[in-house]
Design a protein around this nucleic acid. Structure first.
Lengths: 337, 337
DNA sequence: AACGTTATTGATAACGTTATCGAATCGTGA
DNA sequence: TCACGATTCGATAACGTTATCAATAACGTT
């Protein structure tokens, strides 16, 4: 296997030891800064390490020591949502002395991926993990774990999320305030708590405004463009389409706009669309998407800080809920009279 | 260490073996689908694996087998540029059967990080790597490596980049076309090839237009907001400021706009600003930033495909250069008369 | 000079997995 | 009944590192 690679076969601790004329045990002590090495050998070994460019194998090290100084952030897939969290976590990790490893399986995304990934990496490789939008939250893993935007809400694992309910109310009120009365809703992934809360917020705001919810205008978008396409068509391609659609996340909102254009409708003149998340892509859409901001980078940073505190054994609040807010761009307007 | 965690201590292969009444060797065979295990034991072991939720430790496995089915993407830091590449690589990895691991050190970002990270992960843990904006490109690593936007251009390692020179010409011509004659340039990181090319493109376009380059209007922004702040002030806080600034990447362009506003100047009325990269953040800036698009996600996807082909020993073109294009938003206007 | 202390060092056994290879079992044909 | 190949299985040795602990050297004390 790999027959062609130019093989300088990795300099290992043994090489350093031989060159410096000491044992591997001593090299290990130098590398880990442990007590009990003479000043002279210390500098000599250090020189050899620099010269040979030695770096300890993460795999081997962690297999033995079970302390790696590496934190994992586990995602089903690197889409906009999780990469925003990743940026936030990355910014926060700098101060901590840990390193950050982001892991994603081959996009399979089947239920239970988080337990598989966790099992695969914990115990070896990572000292703790952040899991993003997990569907199964189990407590008994070998290492501390923080969940972001999980399935089951604040039970079980320490959790960071945002106020999905209030945000959904905000979005719906914005549409109602513009004069819309016939409003469609394109929901998220059924198994996620956030999707449930956003729908609940939508229904609550409608009820408060005295508007009936037409159940034929409620679809399931699944948070992804591919999965949102069909239900978006169902919603729009009918005799009495809604004048506005609240999509449960930005990606499906963007897809709703694409479908609308394809059906000859113009946004926002013929149809208002509002999203949720405020991922950077939402500003790139045309027209730029009005949406609800979740402070994703902040959430990532907070999750990382929480994780580090847990590892250090610090006692602290184990559930964080960050506020959402309305971001007005150009995809919503009053309905045609 | 980690005294408080609820320890269900990781189910290992030995546990599966004991429960199923076989040896660890047999379990290993089942896990890896190797020939030589009876149908009955096969199903029995599989059941136990499911039941116990066993997943092989990545660290241990790769230590021994040197084939992990995991690809690494190594970045100094998860900032917008590298996360866009990450999205592209992630989208492309789905089809390949590999998994993707993104790794970043603690933001230290010193020169030579790429060799350190690579040494740490290769040989164990990953079968190949994409390194993003490396400063040192060395060929002799244990595993195939693809560089994206590297220091030294197309020498040494297989490389994916975009046409930085042509893009810079485009940007400069856009400003000139609007009527600007006094144009400032805020360069990138001196050690990166892309920065050199962008400056060269700028100078070329100026020369073609017959415009002299005022060297006091050329600064070094370093590609980051923090490092761009001071030189941006030098550029703008003077008696004869430029009417337009071409910043060598979006982040420093955004910082230029921030500084301008702080100095009481309005963009684009008093100052036009153009960036480079078209990271999603550029559309979120106010005003939305006119910039040069690099197809970052495509570049990530291409880099990943190239890497996989290299691992599989396929012969193919080892250098890819993708086109850049102008994206007009709202940060540029004709100069005040 | 004999001793105890303290500083250095290196063998050696793990860690959880896979690769190799010999042993045990089972059929089958002569 | 015996021999022999095919099938199935499990001991055992790696992989590169760290933790433990015994061995040695160096030194000061009485």
């Amino acid at each position: 296997m790999l027959p062609h690679v130019d093989s300088t076969p990795r300099v290992k601790m043994e090489d350093v030891a031989r060159t410096a004329g000491v044992s591997v045990a001593t090299v290990s002590k130098v590398v880990n800064g442990r007590y009990g090495v003479a000043q002279s050998t210390l500098t000599r070994v250090r020189e050899v390490i620099d010269q040979l460019g030695y770096e300890a194998s993460l795999g081997a090290r962690s297999l033995r020591s079970h302390k790696t100084n590496v934190l994992g952030i586990l995602v089903a897939e690197f889409e906009p949502f999780s990469t925003e969290l990743l940026k936030g976590a990355s910014a926060a990790v700098g101060a901590t002395g840990y390193e950050l490893l982001a892991y994603s399986g081959g996009g399979g995304g089947s239920v239970g991926w988080e337990r598989r990934y966790l099992s695969r990496l914990s115990g070896t490789l990572i000292d703790g993990a952040i899991i993003v939008t997990p569907t199964v939250v189990e407590a008994n893993t070998g290492v501390p774990v923080v969940a972001v935007d999980p399935h089951t809400g604040p039970t079980g694992l320490p959790t960071v999320d945002s106020d999905n309910y209030a945000g959904a109310v905000l979005a719906t009120e914005h549409l109602i305030g513009l004069g819309h009365r016939r409003i469609g809703f394109l929901g998220g992934r059924l198994d996620l708590e956030s999707a449930r809360l956003r729908e609940a917020g939508f229904r609550h705001a409608m009820e408060v405004a005295g508007l009936p919810v037409d159940e034929s205008l409620v679809g399931v978008g699944g948070y992804r463009r591919e999965t949102a396409d069909a239900p978006a068509r169902v919603l729009l391609d009918r005799d009495d389409p809604p004048t506005a659609v609240f999509a449960a996340n930005d990606l499906s909102a963007i897809q709703v706009m694409a479908v609308a254009v394809e059906l000859g409708r113009s946004v926002p003149a013929d149809l208002s669309v509002i999203g949720f998340d405020n991922v950077p892509e939402s500003a790139l859409a045309s027209p730029p998407l009005t949406t609800i901001n979740q402070p994703l980078q902040e959430m990532g940073a907070e999750a990382l800080r929480l994780l580090v505190d847990l590892i250090d054994g610090k006692d602290r609040s184990t559930h964080l809920r960050l506020p959402t807010e309305l971001v007005v761009r150009a995809s919503c307007a009053p309905p045609r009279r």
